[in-house]
């Protein structure tokens, strides 16, 4: 039986023999690619690839084609191709642009406080103190709750007459009349954003805390010896060290918040008078009407928008990295 090329290449390093004197790189060599090895890799990857294809790509492609058809659940006897008619209908609807505006407010209003508060909590949790594990568990807890359930909880908390928020504000002497939080378009947007901030802070905390723990203590000790203050340490050691994690976390959260209808559905259902609808809640309301063609067109518009945003965002963050190096 002949030995494979990869084994022959790997053998010297396994035996620990010294590399030739003119060889600068002492790292173990990458095994050569063979058909047999390729088949092995493919066999191991196949279940995962199959899973992704069957449960993600197939439904995605199958769903996307509805955007170009007359696909209405109320009458599926005629599902003919209609070209871009569903897209035209979406772009011709003035509510769509209002909803886009709400989405921008929802994403920006949620991401900034989530980031700032999440970062602050992560810095606090990095320190060693008694019951730190318990605090961590309590802070991470909201992430385990369903978004829709959080929406329902906050709906009752923000209820003007029976809610705890108005009760607390009233007892603190801050208001003398109950605020109709979910009945007024402006306060309704604030209420849903507050609920989302409460929910999403956790994710930033988890991610940033994990990144913070990878920064060597020596860096902080050296900075301290050099007389660096807290702000300088934060902006010249902490932030640069975890920049990649911060960029990725912000990107992920923007995409998720954009696609996060749960809380809004539980709290306002997009009301009052469509004033808290974001693109994804709007899309769901279209599916509830049975118009899967139009809903699918909206979905494709959302995917395109997020794709464009992600490309620009990644390009922007990559430039910064290049400038630094």
């Amino acid at each position: 039986m002949t030995r494979s090329t990869s084994e022959r290449v790997e053998r010297p390093s396994r035996l620990g023999s010294a590399p030739p004197a003119n060889m600068a790189d002492t790292r173990p060599r990458k095994p050569a690619f063979t058909t047999r090895r390729g088949l092995g890799i493919a066999a191991f990857m196949a279940p995962a690839v199959l899973f992704v294809v069957v449960f993600i790509y197939y439904p995605m492609i199958s769903g996307s084609q509805m955007a170009f058809r007359n696909w209405n659940l109320t009458d599926l006897t005629d599902t003919s191709w209609v070209g871009f008619k569903n897209f035209q209908a979406m772009f011709a609807d003035p509510v769509f642009y209002t909803v886009l505006g709400h989405t921008a407010v929802w994403v920006a209003g949620s991401i900034v406080p989530q980031f700032v508060i999440g970062f602050a909590i992560a810095l606090w949790l990095r320190r060693h103190f008694r019951f730190r594990g318990l605090y961590q568990a309590l802070i991470f807890f909201p992430w385990a709750i369903s978004g829709f359930l959080i929406g329902i909880l906050f709906r009752w908390m923000f209820n003007s007459e029976f809610g705890v928020i108005n009760d607390l504000l009233s007892k603190a002497g801050l208001i003398d009349q109950p605020i109709p939080w979910l009945a007024d378009p402006k306060t309704a947007m604030i209420a849903i954003t507050v609920a989302n901030v409460w929910y999403g802070v956790t994710f930033f905390t988890i991610m940033i805390l994990a990144a913070l723990q990878s920064i060597p203590d020596e860096l902080y000790e050296a900075a301290s010896l050099d007389g660096a203050g807290k702000a300088r340490t934060l902006f010249q050691i902490t932030v640069p060290s975890i920049r990649a994690t911060l960029s990725l976390t912000v990107l992920l959260r923007v995409i998720w918040i954009f696609n996060f209808p749960d809380i809004i559905f539980g709290m306002t259902g997009g009301g009052p008078s469509n004033e808290t609808h974001i693109v994804t809640t709007w899309m769901i309301s279209i599916t509830q009407q049975g118009d899967y063609g139009k809903a699918s067109a909206t979905g494709l518009i959302v995917v395109t928008m997020l794709l464009v945003f992600s490309v620009f965002y990644l390009m922007a963050t990559r430039e910064k990295k290049g400038a630094k190096s």
């Binding site: 209820n159 003007s160 109709p180 009945a183 309704a188 306002t268 009301g271």
Partner: peptide, 11 residues
């Protein structure tokens, strides 16, 4: 109640 603008069945 002014807040009944948003009241559904449960409220």
């Amino acid at each position: 109640p002014p807040s009944s603008v948003a009241w559904g069945y449960p409220e």
